[in-house]
Simulated assay, not measured.
Amino acid sequence: MSESLSQDNFDYTQFDSNTSRFLQNEAGKIKGLLTQTIETIVEIGTSLLEVKKSLQYGQYRQWLHAEFEMSIRTADNFTRVAQCFNDANFTELDIAKSALYLLAAPSVPVEAREEALNIAKDERVSKRRATEIIESHKDSSTEESLPTPPPQKIKTGKRHRRKETKKKSKGTTSRSASRKDLQVAKGETWSLGRYHRLFCGDANSQKFQRLIPKDISLVIYFPDDINGWPTNIPLESGKFHQSSASFHYRQNRR
């Protein structure tokens, strides 16, 4: 068959008389059905399927455009509805055409179509309602298709027990070390920045005496009583404040 067909006027003379008459009769039938209600959608789709069998792909597209100014996408909507709902009695169903086209999509599960038809017997199935039905069935099929993870084998061998023992002993050691770090021993000294020192122990000990610089800005000392004040830091050389908890000594900077 020749594919050099007009986009505006379909050339029926290229076919034999029977084929030409069939195509023109179907075109007239579909034109009449296009103006009718949803009950005719299946019939339109059925006619389009028959025409499609008689024409090549390019000819079918041109015939649709010439006779109805119809795109392949619109024609596919009709044919899919005819294939999916050929046995449905639409005179008893309240369903929107847009919902019908949506339900006829290839990706829609058969169960979703059946549910929509059952609902349409009692209430209106709009495009939005059809979308909800489709999504609910897609979610269910996705959950069913998820692979079940294999059960993990419980390790009970000697090698596994040794590993577990090492983990426990390591954790115990770390906790013990943390508690030890919190303990303070007398005579220990910490550097707080560049010019600050923190000392734990007797302020009159030689170790503490060696830490005292010539120029002191601030000393905060917590002795058991006032007699414990460091002997090398004279109280009369600066301001002295006594409280129930601490002694503070500050020497004025020159």
Rank of each mutant, 00 (worst) to 15 (best):
L48G: 04
S71H: 11
V108N: 04
N89P: 00
V81C: 06
P109M: 07
A99S: 10
L49R: 07
Y101E: 00
S54D: 12
Q56P: 13
H65Q: 13
R80I: 01
D76V: 06
V51R: 00
E69L: 10
A88C: 02
E92G: 01
L49Y: 00
R80Q: 14
R80T: 05
E115K: 14
V81I: 09
W63E: 09
A88I: 05
C84F: 13
Q83L: 01
Q83K: 15
G45R: 00
L64A: 09
S54C: 11
F78L: 04
L64M: 04
R113Y: 11
Y60G: 03
L103G: 13
Y57K: 14
A104C: 08
I44Y: 08
A82W: 02
E50W: 06
E69A: 11
T91M: 12
V110Y: 12
E92A: 15
V81D: 04
T91E: 12
R113F: 12
L103C: 10
S47Y: 01
A112F: 03
F78R: 07
L48D: 01
A116G: 10
V110R: 14
K97E: 15
C84N: 12
Y57H: 13
L64D: 07
Y57S: 13
F68I: 08
S47N: 08
L49K: 07
E92C: 14
L49D: 05
E115A: 15
A96Y: 02
L102Y: 13
P109H: 11
E50P: 06
G58H: 10
P109V: 02
A104V: 08
L49T: 09
A82D: 03
A82R: 00
F68A: 05
F78G: 06
A82F: 04
T79L: 06
A75N: 05
L117F: 07
A112M: 02
A75H: 06
F85D: 15
E111H: 10
L100G: 05
V108I: 09
F85H: 11
G45P: 03
R73E: 14
S47F: 03
K53R: 14
D76C: 05
I95C: 06
L48K: 09
